[in-house]
Write a protein that binds this DNA or RNA. Structure first.
Lengths: 222, 222
DNA sequence: TCAATAGTGTCTGTTAGACATTATGGA
DNA sequence: TCCATAATGTCTAACAGACACTATTGA
């Protein structure tokens, strides 16, 4: 039997409770690992790699994928469930509360508590969460992970989970205001104790391109 | 004849004159395009994709490659010189003044004046220059594109060429000082007219992690 | 002397983050 | 009433960018 050339592996992320979670599917019986990333080999009906990745994503969740990006090609000599020598990885995110299609054979796992996985897929998840953080940081995709109406605390929580760090509340709101990305509605929501929060909706206005400079800060020396 | 599975394409960049340049090699006679990116199919002696990319890089320049990163997999239905259905792209940079190994069959082209290329390779170059800007911005690789001793104007020029935009002189030097990445030597260099410039060397001290916040600025709305 | 480049000092507007305070509900 | 959460105002340190100025060479 001819060996498959490459697989397309999909890392679907979602904020779950207070952590970032990744969707895994149950491996066929007899595999060394019980779980794996959803993947597929390319089909003739897929014109592009993106098409293949979208098909894989649709096969495991019903919800709309907020965005999807290619992460790269992984070809270390490590074992992979498809037996392919090469895996092209994609990362995407789905809205808060998205359920898996098949609750028996797929589940969300916090990225900090992953089960045994093939080493290559573990590397893929690592690179994918990094890519997701960059994406969240540079484009307004967080809004697509929430319902139409959301509180600013909801939004901040999504950012914090995706970025993996706490944010300053006042700064968060100021930055949001300056970017004119959201609009208050006249609805409020009471959530247990505490003052009810105003609901907002995503309503991006025009850009304020500021283009602020060079930062040697971010440099990670080697 | 069986169709090759995938190629590894390498985008080597260097600052040339006032522009960013990419190394292209002459295509075999009879190709539709005269030039192409250097590429190779994987060999049994290559343990990883990175090894293949390094081998390709070494085959076209003698100089040390300052760094190399994978850009991604490109598989649009576009034509590629290797006839491979898939190309894995890598981007790297070589020091200012690096010559091509074979001056007859390879040459530096400013990225703004590329010759006819296969559409896939054109897309690869586009994505690679973006990746290179990110890299330059976030890690101190610019220093590896200069000789041991360099002037701050040299360094700023490298940054400007790689980033594709002008930088503010005073801010550039302040940021550099704050990051404690360079150290003045007691040498000066006179370059035609004007006051001679002091020579510096790369001497990174420890980091000052400041971790300054969330910026909705950078968001590119869609 | 002039032209060109190197290198610095000062000022200002912006903003991240700290801190404090008020507002408003549920328990 | 107490407590938890929402929302906002003020202050400060950091910093990017503008501007101006001095320094030092070759032509």
């Amino acid at each position: 039997m001819r060996r498959p050339t490459f697989s397309v592996d999909v890392v679907l992320l979602t904020p779950l409770d207070r952590h970032l979670a990744v969707l895994l599917v149950r491996s066929p019986e007899g595999s060394a690992e019980r779980w794996s990333l959803p993947w597929s080999l390319g089909k003739a009906t897929d014109a592009t790699l993106e098409d293949t990745a979208s098909r894989v994503a649709r096969s495991v969740v019903t919800a709309q994928v907020a965005w999807m990006d290619q992460v790269g090609a992984f070809a270390d000599s490590r074992r992979h469930p498809s037996d392919a020598e090469l895996s092209i990885a994609f990362v995407g995110a789905v809205p808060v509360g998205t359920l898996t299609r098949d609750s028996d054979d797929s589940a969300w796992f916090p990225v900090v508590e992953l089960p045994a996985l093939s080493p290559r897929q573990r590397a893929i998840i690592e690179a994918s969460t990094d890519a997701a953080r960059l994406k969240i940081d540079s484009t307004p995709v967080a809004f697509r992970l929430l319902p139409q109406r959301f509180t600013l605390s909801d939004l901040q929580r999504v950012y914090e989970i995706m970025l993996g760090r706490r944010l300053h509340k006042a700064s968060f709101r100021r930055a949001l205001q300056a970017a004119t990305l959201v609009e208050p509605t006249d609805e409020w929501r009471s959530e247990g104790r505490g003052r009810p929060a105003q609901l907002y909706r995503y309503a991006p206005k025009r850009r304020r391109r500021v283009r602020r400079g060079l930062r040697f800060d971010g440099i990670s020396l080697n």
